[in-house]
């Protein structure tokens, strides 16, 4: 029940993220953005979806048919998997029984999320490789090296959180950030590193080298059309949503908001309000994603690698060491 709700929610959010992205892009450039399909352009995602479905389904002759279809399917599948480990709110009480607002409370939640995120690169790699196109292949190679490089710094910045909370369970991490005890206050550097890496992991500007229109036509999805292309684009927005949720959970106190638990709301209302708090935080991250995209130009490839390996990873290691020392001294 909850799982299907979150599935539908992720898809809906991804749909409307495309509209919001275009709206925000317009506002940043002193334009209105799409406003013709329905009031305020609200039907634009439906129109886009219908368009993608009716587009010609093109497959290059020399493409590997199985892998070519597997690529976008895998990307979409993996993008949707991550949301399972995220705690969306406190327990719902129905007929005296408590229902946790989390699909799977695995005690190694963080590991699960990172494991799934690492598989994410396969969708892009397989798709780019199976297209049998040089641009697609270059995009795919870029994507894989970029994601592998930034995953290191990302995991290292998370280790500090794990050290502080002493748990790998997402639920436990959120529980420890109750009130205004948010991790971002103790780990600002870790948060910054995680944020930068999240941009790189989701292939968003300024790290959108895998699709880099100016050099690689469309990057890994050059040869894709119709809804297969739609899946790739969609998965990017789902990834944005999920990474926003992960960041909110790990650093911004998840569904906690200072003073909210003292209002004395009934459990179910409290659960709903908490969920909305989390959702607001995720929306904030979504906006930051777009804000950055329409502000910064794309990195050059060597700059990207230099930033990842020579700045972020040493900083993350330093952060781990400092955190360890502080924890030891406080014992």
């Amino acid at each position: 029940m909850l799982a299907s709700f979150i599935l539908v929610l992720s898809l809906l959010v991804a749909m409307y993220s495309t509209l919001i992205e275009r709206k925000v892009a317009g506002w940043f450039q002193d334009r209105h953005g799409p406003n013709r399909a329905g009031p305020w352009g609200l039907l634009q995602p439906l129109a886009d979806g219908a368009k993608l479905f009716f587009k010609e389904e093109f497959m290059p002759l020399s493409a590997d048919k199985f892998l070519y279809i597997l690529g976008p399917s895998l990307t979409m599948f993996i993008a949707l998997l991550t949301s399972a480990a995220i705690p969306w709110g406190p327990d719902l009480i129905i007929n005296g029984a408590a229902y946790p607002l989390q699909v799977a409370d695995v005690n190694i939640g963080i590991l699960y999320v990172f494991a799934i995120l690492s598989i994410g690169v396969y969708g892009i790699m397989i798709g780019g490789w199976a297209s049998n196109n040089k641009y697609a292949l270059l995009g795919a190679v870029r994507a894989s090296s970029q994601m592998i490089s930034y995953e290191l710094a990302m995991s290292l910045s998370i280790i500090t959180i794990v050290m502080m909370t002493g748990s790998l369970s997402m639920r436990e991490i959120v529980a420890q950030q109750q009130g205004f005890n948010w991790n971002i206050i103790y780990q600002p550097l870790g948060f910054l590193i995680f944020l930068i890496c999240a941009f790189a992991e989701t292939n968003r500007a300024p790290f959108d080298l895998p699709e880099c229109e100016t050099e690689l036509v469309g990057g890994y999805h050059t040869e894709y059309s119709s809804m297969k292309l739609g899946f790739y684009l969609f998965a990017e927005y789902i990834n944005m949503f999920i990474s926003g949720a992960v960041m909110a959970t790990l650093f911004l106190g998840g569904y906690h908001f200072p003073g909210l638990d003292k209002l004395g709301l009934s459990p179910n209302v409290f659960a709903f309000v908490s969920f909305m708090v989390l959702f607001t935080k995720i929306t904030l991250f979504g906006f930051i994603y777009m804000w950055i995209r329409w502000t910064l130009p794309r990195f050059r490839y060597d700059q990207l690698m230099k930033l990842g390996w020579k700045s972020l990873i040493p900083l993350a290691i330093l952060n781990v060491v400092v955190t360890g020392v502080v924890i030891l001294l406080n014992q």
Binding site: G26, W27, F28, Q29, D30, R31, H32, N35, W291, I292, W294, T295, L296
Partner: peptide
Amino acid sequence: ILNGMRITFGHLFRRKTTVQ
């Protein structure tokens, strides 16, 4: 980067130049 973001944020509230 922060300065750039400040500038783009300012544009959010500018009068739109589009003629509908």
